[in-house]
C-alpha cells in the first residue's frame, strides 16, 4: 500500500478534469485545446517557480511581491527594448538584475530585520507598484520585440515555445532541488532551522538566496508573459499572485515548509488553468470560479493531509 505523491494526484486530476470537460462540452476535448491550456499553465507555472522555493524554505515563507515583480519585468522589457529584438538581451539582463535585487531586499529584510515574510513581501509589492505608477504615470512607451513574441508563441512541431521553456525550467528546478547542495539545504532549512544551523548550514544565506531567486524568476516570468500578452498594463501580474500560491499548494508543497517539489507546482498550475478554462467555457461567472477554486484547494489539501497521517 504505497503512497501516491501529491504531484501525481494533481496531474491525474488535471487529466481527469480535461476529459470530464469533454462530457460537459464535447467540443472542449481536442489537441489544440489541450496545447492551449498547457501554454496558459506555462506562464502560471513559471511565475510560481520562485514561490515554490520560498514556501519550501519554511518560516512562514511566502512571496506576495511576485505579482508586482511580474508587472515590473514586463514593463521594463517593454520600455528598454522599445520593441527592438537586438535590445532584448539588454532588457533581459536588466530585468533579471532588478528582479533579483528586489528579492534580495526581501530576503535581507526577512532574515536580518526579522520582518515576517508576509509583511515584508506585501510591503515590497506596494513599493514596486507605487514606483511603477509614479515613474510612468500610466504612460508607458515601448514595444514588444518580435524575437520575444516568436520565442513564446512561435511553434515547433505544433507546440508553442512557452511550453518548451516551461519544460526546461522544470528540469532546471528539479536539478536545483535534488542535485545541488542548495536544494538539499533548502529542505533542511524548511523543516528545522536549528537542526540545519547546528549541522553547519548557512541558514541566513539559504533564505536570502531563496527570496532572491524568487524575485529573479518572477521578473523572468514577466518578460516571457509580455511575449504572450503583447501589451503591458499596471495589473498584468497581479492576477497571478493568488494562483501562484494555490498552484504550489495544490501541487502538494507543504505551507509549513520542508516538503514539496516543482513538478507538483507544475501539475498544480495545470489543474488551476484547466479548471479556469472549463468554467469559462461554460460561461460561469468569476464569483463561482473562485468558489470552485476554493473547493478544489480544500479537497486536495485534506486528501494530502490524510495521506500524511498514514505515513
Amino acid at each position: 500500500m504505497s503512497r501516491v505523491p501529491p504531484a501525481a494526484v494533481a496531474l491525474l486530476l488535471s487529466v481527469a478534469l480535461f476529459f470530464l470537460a469533454g462530457l460537459v462540452q464535447p467540443n472542449f476535448v481536442n489537441a489544440a485545446q489541450a496545447i492551449n491550456i498547457v501554454r496558459l499553465a506555462a506562464f502560471l507555472g513559471i511565475i510560481a517557480a520562485g514561490q515554490t522555493l520560498v514556501i519550501i524554505s519554511g518560516g512562514e515563507g511566502i512571496d506576495l511581491s511576485v505579482g508586482a515583480v511580474v508587472t515590473l519585468g514586463a514593463i521594463l522589457t517593454f520600455m528598454i527594448s522599445g520593441g527592438s529584438s537586438e535590445r532584448l538581451w539588454l532588457a533581459l539582463l536588466v530585468v533579471l538584475a532588478v528582479g533579483a535585487a528586489i528579492g534580495l531586499v526581501n530576503g535581507l529584510g526577512i532574515v536580518f530585520v526579522r520582518i515576517p515574510p508576509l509583511v515584508m513581501t506585501l510591503g515590497m509589492a506596494g513599493v514596486v507598484q507605487g514606483t511603477i505608477l509614479a515613474v510612468t504615470r500610466g504612460n508607458i512607451p515601448g514595444g514588444v520585440p518580435r524575437a520575444l513574441a516568436n520565442l513564446v508563441t512561435g511553434r515547433f512541431l505544433g507546440v508553442p515555445g512557452a511550453i518548451y521553456l516551461w519544460a526546461l525550467l522544470g528540469l532546471l528546478m528539479w536539478f536545483v532541488l535534488q542535485r545541488t547542495r542548495y536544494g538539499r539545504e533548502l529542505f533542511a532549512v524548511g523543516v528545522n532551522r536549528r537542526t540545519a544551523a547546528l549541522s553547519g548550514v548557512n541558514v541566513s544565506g539559504v533564505v536570502v538566496l531563496t527570496y532572491t531567486l524568487s524575485g529573479l524568476l518572477a521578473a523572468l516570468g514577466g518578460l516571457l508573459l509580455l511575449g504572450f500578452t503583447q501589451r503591458v498594463f499596471l495589473t498584468l501580474g497581479e492576477t497571478y499572485l493568488f494562483p501562484s500560491i494555490a498552484a504550489v499548494v495544490v501541487g502538494g508543497t507543504v505551507l509549513a515548509g520542508g516538503r514539496g517539489s516543482y513538478f507538483g507546482t507544475m501539475a498544480g498550475a495545470l489543474v488551476l488553468t484547466m479548471t479556469e478554462s472549463l468554467l469559462r467555457s461554460m460561461r460561469i461567472g468569476e464569483a463561482y470560479q473562485m468558489i470552485v477554486f476554493g473547493a478544489i484547494l480544500v479537497v486536495l489539501l485534506s486528501v494530502y493531509g490524510r495521506q500524511r497521517e498514514r505515513e
Partner: peptide, 17 residues
Amino acid sequence: REGLLPVRPILENLQLP
C-alpha cells in the same frame, strides 16, 4: 529540536553537514 529533520529521508539527515 536540534538533531533531526523528522519528515526528511534518513539519507538527507545523515548527509546534511
